[in-house]
């Protein structure tokens, strides 16, 4: 039985797809058979972030509608073993994902994979609710910024009331907080909410803190998940988060301002 993990946030543009790609890749690198599913019908982007956009022939909706089999639609990642991708449909209407259809696909995948990572669309509408409905665990991606934190709290409310686990009175979805685009220097200057501020407000366990990093844009430009960039702080922070997701207790890094040498300060070079 696969573990189903939804990557969600409420607010758009906080790094859900970047996180889905990184965490999914990280799990596969640890030897777990993993599939990442893009639930953002109409606005598919996971394929671009994963660098497999030219290999998409059939998508999630094709499988639900019986127009293609899962084996036809699932794309095997070329860089990472054990990693597979199921793209979202580009043109169909938002109602294309039905609960029965999604259930059928997840059931079929469940026997074949260790982890199913569901990349949720933004918002709290049907698409987002469908992505989280069947989840066992949730990664709530939050920027240290007021609107993102508020929307994350709303998504937590939906996880606790509208998921399958909630409706059937089962053990609740295990929630993880992932803070992205964190800038310790601005936190020091009192310009940005700190990790503990966000933890205080949302009150869920912290999975990881991903520092703001130029590597994230570079990675998406190239269609390679940022976790593969082991030199980058963001890549390392995602690797740590994957370890924690798998149960390891390791300390958080990159929470404090990196000490710069004299020349770096003088020239304003950024890491």
């Amino acid at each position: 039985m696969a573990k189903i993990i939804v990557v969600t946030s409420g607010k758009g543009g906080v790094g859900k797809t970047t996180t889905s790609a990184a965490i999914g890749t990280g799990l596969a690198m640890q030897g777990h058979r993993t599939i990442i599913i893009d639930f953002d019908v109409g606005l598919r982007n996971l394929d671009l972030i994963m660098g497999c956009e030219r290999r998409v022939v059939y998508d999630f909706v094709n499988v639900i509608n019986g127009e293609a089999s899962l084996s036809q639609a699932v794309i095997k990642d070329k860089r990472t073993d054990n990693l597979y991708i199921l793209a979202a449909s580009q043109t169909r209407d938002k109602d294309a994902l039905t609960q029965e259809g999604v259930q059928k696909v997840l059931d079929e995948l469940s026997t074949n994979y260790d982890f199913i990572v569901c990349d949720s669309p933004a918002g709290i509408e049907k698409g987002a609710q469908m992505a989280l409905y069947f989840a066992d665990e949730a990664i709530v991606v939050t920027n240290p910024e007021v609107s993102s934190v508020r929307d994350s709290d709303r998504i937590l409310g939906i996880l606790q009331s509208k998921s399958k686990r909630a409706e059937q009175g089962k053990e609740p979805i295990k929630e993880h907080l992932l803070i992205t685009r964190y800038n310790p220097s601005r936190v020091n200057d009192g310009e940005m909410l700190s990790v503990s501020d966000v933890e205080d407000i949302l009150a869920i366990p912290l999975l990881g803190v991903i520092p703001e990093s130029e590597a994230v844009l570079k990675a998406s430009n190239q269609g390679a998940p940022v976790i593969l960039d082991s030199q980058a702080t963001a890549g390392q922070a995602y690797s740590d988060a994957v370890q924690r997701l798998l149960g390891d207790e390791i300390g958080h890094r990159f929470l404090n301002v990196e000490k710069k040498g004299f020349f770096k300060r003088l020239l304003g070079a950024s890491a």
């Binding site: 910024e145 007021v146 934190v149 508020r150 936190v187 200057d189 009192g190 310009e191 940005m192 909410l193 700190s194 501020d197 205080d200 407000i201």
Partner: peptide
């Protein structure tokens, strides 16, 4: 710039 993060936390 004052401590705007504190204001953000309080409002949130």
């Amino acid at each position: 710039t004052g401590n705007t993060a504190a204001a953000a936390k309080e409002r949130l």
